[in-house]
Computed example of a mutant assay.
Amino acid sequence: MLIIRPIRSSDYDALYQIAVESGHGFTSLPVNEELLRNKIKRVEESFVKQLDKPFDEGYLMVLEDTETGEVVGTCGLEAAVGMVDAFYHYRLGTEVYHSEQIDVRNEVETLTLCHDYTGSAELCTLFLRESYRKNNNGRMLSRSRFLFLAQHAARFGETVIAEMRGESDAEGNSPFYSWLQQHFLGIGFVQADYLSGLGQKAFMAEMMPKNAVYVCLLPEEAQKVIGEVHRNTRPALNLLQAEGFRCRGYVDIFDGGPTVECNINDIRSVKESRLLTVNIGEMPASTTGYIISNTLLADYRATSADLLVSDETDEVTISAELAAGLMVAQGEQIRVLAL
């Protein structure tokens, strides 16, 4: 059985290996022991923290193959970004220049550095090992976060965002970043991305252009990739767009990839998920797959299975094995979402 659960200290080695495998552009998991151990510690504290409103909590979960005990994937949520470390984006805008005297009107696209998403929740750190990229495992892993959001909405900002990886080559070189490196930062894309992942962002405030950047003055290669996603990220973007996420004109400051957003209550899977009361017994035959989670926090568990769910009742029968995996007992509730 594949079970999603909160990460714990004993998962460090698996998390480090995932950080290595994820490669360039996966900013949330730099290959750095101190940062990864601190990330796990922060997550463990977040899952047991009592709070009145979201601040800087992180909820990183792992996908475990219970037959082997192997951790094969991760998915994460940030409660409210930018509350401790600055959270930068470029905001796409337009400046209009018009002269009646010479009868010329021009609209010029601009990029302006901003912190507009401060306080928003974030979908992040989605990774699945290649050998498990089958049988809707990736879809289950990604969408399971919406069940967690639905169940624990008060722990998150009202706007939920996701940063989509922008264009870069196999060596991690970004066409969008090259002009920034040449004229402002002076360090390579991989190094800048790594420092950002470490939370060492002072160089951004010190070296990034303070005024709006005119897109038309950038190299053509850089202009072409603004708002474009990396080919490996296209399926993830399609999934989020189906959930109601849209790009509102914000892009990553390093690779130009789009950031998409949706109000937490407008996310399709949040709205469509249902709470059902558990009956433990022999599961009726069904060919309809569901993502299933318990309603707990520190002991959160999620998985997928074929269930017989009816609109006529708020009860569902699950097997004893499935109930044990989800850590639920007879008469307790689970949250379900059609896969």
Rank of each mutant, 00 (worst) to 15 (best):
P284V: 09
G289N: 10
D266W: 06
D252Q: 09
D252A: 07
S273P: 08
D255G: 00
D252C: 07
V229A: 12
A212E: 10
Q223L: 08
K201F: 02
P219W: 05
C216P: 04
N294C: 00
V225Y: 01
C247H: 05
V270W: 02
V270L: 10
G227K: 02
G289K: 09
N263T: 12
Q223W: 05
F245W: 08
Q241T: 13
V215R: 03
D252N: 09
F254S: 08
E243N: 11
E261Y: 09
A205Y: 10
Y250T: 09
I267P: 02
N232L: 13
P258Y: 00
V270C: 11
K271Q: 12
V260G: 04
A212Y: 01
S273V: 07
N279D: 05
A236R: 07
I267F: 08
V251Q: 04
P209F: 03
C247E: 04
C262M: 13
D255I: 00
P284R: 10
F254D: 03
P219H: 06
S269F: 07
M283W: 01
R274Q: 12
R231A: 13
G289D: 08
T288Q: 14
D266N: 11
I280A: 06
C262N: 14
V278I: 09
Y250N: 05
R246D: 12
I280R: 07
